[in-house]
């Protein structure tokens, strides 16, 4: 093999670089994110339910928001009928955030943990939050 030594060194340097996030985080514990649901609006709900079951929302809320967006803007359909037949007005700012008025304790908790940066809030106005 020509330049075998150099190639080996190159591979090792690359592996060290690529594996940086792993060995850098060894032994560090990140607390499991627990989004808070204790907003005044939610507390007053008779039945503490989101538009769809919790597990579904956890896994699919991003896809659902996309569907809501397309339905409201592109088709002008602003009512969502959930799996129980209940209607909801489609609006991120006025429906979702009406209940989840604690963006920092709700949205940001998991998004920060998962290092995702949805850019909803460059346009949509986040609810005013009291420092808790």
């Amino acid at each position: 093999m020509y330049n075998g030594g150099k190639i080996l060194i190159g591979i090792i340097v690359f592996l060290l670089f690529a594996a940086f996030p792993f060995y850098n985080n060894i032994g560090k514990v990140s607390a499991k994110p627990e989004p808070k649901l204790n907003t005044p609006v939610i507390q007053q709900l008779a039945e503490k339910k989101c538009v769809e079951p919790k597990d579904f929302m956890k896994a699919e809320h991003m896809q659902m928001l996309n569907d809501w967006r397309d339905s409201a803007i592109r088709e002008g359909k602003r009512t969502y009928i959930n799996s129980e037949g209940k209607p909801f007005y489609i609006s991120l700012q006025n429906t979702c955030m009406n209940c989840h008025s604690n963006k920092k304790e709700f949205c940001d908790k998991c998004h920060t943990y998962a290092a995702v940066k949805p850019y909803c809030w460059t346009c949509h106005i986040e609810p005013k939050e009291k420092r808790s």
């Binding site: 699919e60 569907d67 002008g76 359909k77 602003r78 009512t79 969502y80 009928i81 007005y89």
Partner: peptide, 14 residues
């Protein structure tokens, strides 16, 4: 698509 049961409707008052 788990959303199958759900639908989008035009707002009644529209």
């Amino acid at each position: 698509d788990i959303l199958e049961a759900s639908q989008f409707l035009q707002t009644k008052e529209l």
